[in-house]
Design a protein around this nucleic acid. Structure first.
Length: 566
RNA sequence: CGGGGUGUGGCGCAGCUUGGUAGCGCGCACGGUUCGGGACCGUGAGGCCCCCGGUUCAAAUCCGGGCACCCCGACCA
């Protein structure tokens, strides 16, 4: 059993705030500031104050234990790294990278992640006999974020637990990847976090697989599509879905022009014609990576998903300018359609079947009954729409819901990109030199901590899961009850400590109301009150923060009552 | 990077339109009365009014230029 402790609030720095700081909107931001857990130093730069640091260390330790459990070896890498490593992997050009130089003007990089460094170190691996290897560290990361926000949820400097796997082949990587997935689930479960393991985008890093761990919360920055029935979950960036069936009008033998004055939005169009918005298609001209104009086509009620279209086009695109549109279509945005245009068309799968109202490429006019294949021919069919709530699950008969979530971890099959760039190779049994196959895996402990606050709070404060609470017991001593009450509180505190509990003894010279308010704010799982009543009958009040459940317990049995129920 | 907002004692804010000795609540210090859900009385400390420049007899207030922070969007290995 761990050694218990008694901390006297009168001697601690607990800068709780009575009012909400003006700059804080997100629940976790507000409560972490008010409870005195963190303070802001600059935009996206936070200090953990003593109370918050206690929690942080527990979060870190749980993650550490789960990494150790899969045989991952802890180490520590420097934050400051030579620019050359980044130049070699081609990541020196990333905008978010902090670049600095030393007194001799030699260029350095403040690491935003540690692939370069660890791969540099992995060059010491020389034989297949040394594989696989799993290494990790808790290391600072620096990112020149264009927009830090919501307290700890998006910051410019933070500690990340990042681990890296080194394997001889894809099969080995799959094993290392699965181990990490298991460790992450175990860690997040132990932390008391609600999360979804979702399929995610492999981005421009060209990996062969990736999952994100998403904690649902209001302040989340990502949207996760989920199916309650089968458990399917994916970032909307990659989520597949079955579109709802549109209410189509009578089929026509050929498109028919209809005058639609002023109807330049799907809403106004559907209202004017008295039709289902899902029976329309909207055309979005964009300029692709090669400078060519391309027409993106999605159903009227759908949203074009930029990332999906970017993948189809093979690079960045931008919406076409009004002049470009006018020149190519002879009409303006809001009246565009696929019929008769000579541009490449990328159409969303949802439009394969059926007939739709589209723009007529003539201001103030639309076409009824336009069918793909008959009236126009898309060069590419693809899923380019954003999955939306109410769509069908791609895996079962269920329905998708979409909710905001914050990414607290990810696992990523890197492949050989870094090992090839930096020359991390091994010799196989046949003496053939091969690049090490890598995976990278990250968890943000600080962001995870904030996500837990997002999920675990009420209108009075934080409700920490017991395993990461700053203290096991918040012992409130009612000062006005006199020296005997103080003595009794002290005794209870020592007995709890002897039983291995950490105790925050609020012996400050303050009124009971303030102490109770602070206890609610700080959110330890159990609050024990010792006052006049306790002197009368020897029983103290034990209150659970989460349930609000209250009981009177003999002073000598507090430790048992607390640890028993914990 | 685009749009919006805010900078006034430690915190939350008023004052700015219409220029004239810088205010309120909380907190803080001291004294007293209080004390099981953020008490009260008295006394007191604490402010380059974000910065630089301009206008003016006079600028927290008007004008110009910066900077910082927050929110929405873009971006996000």
């Amino acid at each position: 059993m761990s050694r218990g402790t008694v901390s006297r609030a009168s001697q601690l720095f607990l800068p709780t705030l009575r009012e909400d700081p003006a700059e804080a909107e997100a629940a976790s931001h507000r409560l972490l500031l008010r409870s005195g857990c963190v303070r802001q130093v600059g935009a996206g730069l936070y200090a953990f104050m003593p109370l918050g640091w206690r929690v942080y260390k527990k979060v870190e330790q749980i993650i550490r234990e789960e990494m150790d459990a899969i045989g991952c070896q802890e180490m520590l890498m420097p934050l400051l790294t030579p620019a050359e490593l980044w130049q070699r992997t081609g990541r020196y050009e990333i905008n978010e990278l902090f670049k600095v130089s030393d007194r001799a003007d030699r260029p350095f990089v403040l690491a935003m992640t540690h692939e370069e460094t660890i791969t540099f170190l992995a060059r010491e691996i020389s034989s297949y006999r040394q594989l696989p290897q799993l290494w990790y560290h808790f290391g600072l990361k620096e990112r020149d974020e264009p927009r830090p926000r919501a307290g700890l949820l998006r910051v410019r400097e933070f500690v990340m637990k990042d681990s890296y796997s080194f394997d001889r082949d894809q099969e080995g990587l799959d094993v290392s990847y699965a181990k990490h997935a298991a460790a992450y689930r175990a860690a997040f479960d132990r932390l008391g976090l609600r999360y979804y393991e979702v399929e995610s985008d492999t981005g421009m890093m060209g990996g062969t697989g990736a999952h994100e761990y998403m904690a649902p919360c209001e302040a989340g920055e990502n949207d996760v599509a989920r199916c309650e029935a089968c458990g399917y979950a994916a970032n909307v960036e990659v989520a597949a879905s079955r579109p709802t069936a549109p209410d189509l009008p009578q089929r026509r033998n050929a498109p028919e022009e209809v005058e639609t004055p002023g109807a330049t939005t799907i809403e106004s169009l559907a209202a004017l014609l008295g039709i289902d918005p899902r029976a329309t298609a909207k055309a979005m001209p964009v300029v692709g990576p090669d400078g060519q104009l391309v027409l993106g086509l999605v159903r009227g009620d759908h949203r074009l998903h930029e990332l999906k279209l970017r993948k189809v086009l093979g690079g960045d695109f931008r919406p076409a300018h009004p002049e470009e549109i006018r020149e190519a279509f002879g009409a303006d945005g809001g009246s565009l359609g696929p019929v008769g245009v000579s541009l490449p068309i990328v159409a969303d799968e949802a439009l394969r079947e059926g007939w739709y109202v589209t723009g007529a490429n003539r201001n103030g006019w639309h076409l009824l009954g336009v069918e793909a294949g008959r009236d126009f021919e898309p060069g590419t069919w693809a899923d380019i729409r954003e999955a939306q709530a109410g769509d069908g699950c791609p895996r079962c008969d269920g329905t998708l819901s979409v909710e905001p979530a914050i990414e607290v971890g990810n696992i990523f099959k890197l492949g050989t990109r870094y090992s090839e760039a930096l020359g991390a190779t091994y010799l196989d049994e046949a003496g053939v030199e091969r690049p090490i196959v890598m995976g990278s895996y990250g968890i943000g402990p600080g962001r995870t901590l904030a996500a837990i606050v997002e999920q675990c709070h009420d209108d009075r404060g934080i409700v920490w899961p017991a395993q990461i609470a700053p203290y096991d017991v918040h012992l409130v001593e009612i000062g006005a009850a006199g020296p005997e009450a103080a003595e009794l509180a002290d005794l209870v505190a020592r007995e709890c400590a002897a039983a291995g509990l950490s105790v925050l003894l609020d012996d400050r010279d303050q009124r009971p109301g303030e102490k109770f308010a602070d206890a609610d704010l700080i959110g330890c799982p159990v609050r024990v009150t010792v006052g006049k009543k306790a002197l009368e009958d020897g029983q103290v009040d034990v209150k659970r923060r989460a349930s609000g459940e209250e009981a009177r317990v003999p002073a000598s049995q507090v430790a048992a009552a607390v640890s028993g129920a914990a």
